[in-house]
Design a protein around this nucleic acid. Structure first.
Length: 455
DNA sequence: TCTGGGGTCCTAGGACCC
DNA sequence: TCTGGGGTCCTAGGACCC
C-alpha cells in the first residue's frame, strides 16, 4: 500500500508558521519579479485567484478583499521541506521525495490499519513543523494521489466528498460502492497525469469522470493517446505500474531561467543575464558533483506582447569535454547566445540548461586533443598538456581548485560575492534580477534573519 | 505597464550503419 | 534501366508535473 503526504498550500503554510497573522486571510505567494501567483491559501482560491495568474490581474483584491501577497522565499520553503520530509520518512520502510511538498511512502509489509498511522503522522508534522498536511492511501501511486486529493477537498469543501475522508483518506479500504461514488464525483482532469490537453480530448470522447475513465478500453486509449494514459487507467483500476522510487537517479539536466523585470533588446544585456544563469547552473552542477557535456541556451520574446515581432530561438553548444567550470560554461553559453541573438526584438526571458550530465571525474582520460580549451576555440594556442596532470583552465589556472575556492568564498560571504567578470555587470548597468519586494525573512537558514520572540 | 521556474518522460522522424 | 531493409541512436517537440 502506498501513501502520498502533501503539505496544504505549501508556500503559504510556510509563511504562516512564522507569521500567524496570515492565518485565515487570503494570501498568495508571487513568482520572480512579483509577476504571478504561484501559491494560494484556501481563502485566496475562494476569491477566484488561479494558479500562475498574473499579479496585476488580482492586485485590486488587496483593497477589495484584504488579499496579502508575498514574494517567494525559496530558501525558507526548501528548509521547511527537508524537515517535513525527514519526519514523514520515519513512518514507512521506503520513501520517495516527489516534490518540495510531496512524498510517496511505501507501506509494503506494514501490518494493521494505516489510517491511524496517517493521522499520527499528520499530527506529528503539524506539531513539529507547523505545516498542515493531507494524507492519501491507495494500492497504487495514482490511487494514493487521488486519495490525497479527496482528503484535501473533503476538508476544504464539505459536501464534495464524505467528511470522514477529510485530512486522511484510504481508498484501498473503502467498500466498492463508496469507491464508485468517489470516482463518479471526480472529474478526469483531477487525476495525476491527465492534463489540460488530454482532459479536453477525453471530454470530447464522452469521458468526463474517473468512473467513465476506468470503464474505457485501455488498449484503445493507448492507441489514441499514449502508454502514459494507459498506465494511469490501469493504476486507477488497482494494477500498480509505478513503484516508489527511493533512490532517484541523478538529474539529467540543470536549468536556470527567468523572465526579466523589463525587456532587453541589446546583445550586451543578454550576455550579462546569460552569464549569470550560466554561473548559477555551473554552481548547481558542482554541488551535485556533476559535469555537463553540453550547454543549451534559449532567449524568448513575450507572446503576451501581441504587437511585438516574436523570436524565441534556442540552441545547444557542446563542451569539448564534460565540465562544471563556470568559465567554460559561460563561454559556451555566450557563444550559443551570439548565434541566437537578432537585433530589434524585445526579449523578456532567457535560460541556460546543462545537458548530458555525468558524474564528475567519470570523464574518459584526462587528456584530449585540444587540452582544456573551450569547444576547441583556442586549440593550439596553449601548447601541449602534460600527461597525468589536471589540464589547466582557460588562463592556465587549475580549474577545479579555482572553482572550489570560488564556491567556498560564496558559501561564506553569500552567493555572488565572487564571480566571473562577465556576469558581474549588474550593479553598473541596471538590475535584471527582478523585484522581490515582499519577501519574508529566511527565518531558518540565516542567523541574521532568525525569528525574534517578543514578550 | 505588469503574465513562473525547474524538471521528467514519451514519441516521431531523421541520420547513420551495415 | 534497375536503386534495400532493418536496426540503432539522436534530437526536437509535446504533454505533463509541482
Amino acid at each position: 500500500m502506498y501513501a502520498l503526504v502533501d503539505v496544504n498550500n505549501m508556500y503559504v503554510s510556510c509563511e504562516r508558521v512564522f507569521n500567524p497573522s496570515l492565518i485565515g486571510r487570503p494570501v498568495v505567494v508571487l513568482s520572480n519579479n512579483d509577476g504571478a501567483c504561484i501559491a494560494r491559501s484556501n481563502e485566496a482560491k475562494d476569491l477566484g485567484v488561479k494558479m500562475a495568474q498574473p499579479w496585476f490581474q488580482v492586485r485590486h483584491l488587496q483593497r477589495q478583499a484584504g488579499l496579502v501577497a508575498l514574494s517567494a522565499n525559496f530558501e525558507l520553503y526548501g528548509d521547511m521541506s527537508s524537515r517535513m520530509m525527514a519526519l514523514v520518512g520515519r513512518h514507512a520502510p521506503r520513501q520517495e521525495v516527489y516534490s518540495i511538498d510531496e512524498s510517496f511512502l511505501d507501506f509494503d509489509g506494514v501490518p494493521g490499519d494505516l489510517v491511524p498511522i496517517g493521522r499520527e503522522m499528520r499530527a506529528q508534522v503539524l506539531q513539529w513543523t507547523g505545516l498542515p498536511t493531507s494524507v492519501g492511501f491507495g494500492p497504487t501511486k495514482t490511487l494514493a494521489k487521488l486519495a490525497n486529493h479527496v482528503a484535501k477537498m473533503a476538508e476544504r469543501k464539505p459536501g464534495s466528498y464524505p467528511t470522514e475522508f477529510a485530512q486522511v483518506c484510504h481508498l484501498g479500504a473503502v467498500p466498492l460502492d463508496a469507491l464508485r461514488q468517489v470516482f463518479g464525483a471526480t472529474p478526469v482532469g483531477d487525476v495525476w497525469g491527465i492534463g489540460r490537453r488530454s482532459t479536453a480530448r477525453l471530454n470530447e470522447g464522452g469521458i468526463h469522470t474517473v468512473l467513465d475513465l476506468v470503464h474505457a478500453d485501455a488498449a484503445t486509449l493507448r492507441r489514441q493517446f499514449s502508454v502514459v494514459l494507459e498506465k494511469t487507467v490501469l493504476e486507477l483500476r488497482g494494477t500498480a505500474c509505478l513503484d516508489v522510487d527511493h533512490e532517484p537517479a541523478p538529474q539529467q539536466q540543470i536549468m536556470c531561467s527567468r523572465s526579466f523585470g523589463s525587456p532587453i533588446t541589446e546583445l550586451a544585456g543578454l550576455v550579462e543575464v546569460v552569464s549569470q544563469f550560466a554561473t548559477r547552473v555551473a554552481e548547481k552542477a558542482r554541488q551535485q558533483a556533476a559535469a555537463a557535456g553540453a550547454v543549451h541556451v534559449f532567449i524568448a520574446t513575450s507572446p503576451f506582447r501581441q504587437n511585438d515581432r516574436q523570436h524565441s530561438p534556442s540552441t545547444t553548444w557542446p563542451l569539448a569535454r564534460p565540465s562544471a567550470d563556470t568559465r567554460l560554461v559561460i563561454q559556451a553559453a555566450v557563444q550559443a547566445l551570439n548565434g541566437l541573438y537578432r537585433p530589434g526584438f524585445n526579449y523578456v526571458k532567457a535560460g541556460v540548461m546543462l545537458m548530458a550530465l555525468q558524474p564528475e571525474g567519470l570523464q574518459q582520460g584526462k587528456l584530449d586533443l585540444f587540452g582544456a580549451s573551450p569547444a576547441g576555440a583556442q586549440a593550439g594556442t596553449q601548447g601541449s598538456t602534460l600527461p597525468c596532470r589536471p589540464a589547466p583552465g582557460p588562463r592556465g589556472v587549475d580549474g577545479a581548485r579555482l572553482m572550489g575556492a570560488l564556491d567556498a568564498l560564496n558559501r561564506r560571504f553569500g552567493r555572488g560575492a565572487v564571480t566571473v567578470a562577465s556576469a558581474a555587470h549588474q550593479a553598473r548597468n541596471g538590475d535584471h534580477s527582478g523585484r522581490q519586494e515582499r519577501r519574508s525573512p529566511r527565518y531558518t537558514t540565516r542567523l541574521e534573519e532568525i525569528a525574534t520572540a517578543r514578550a
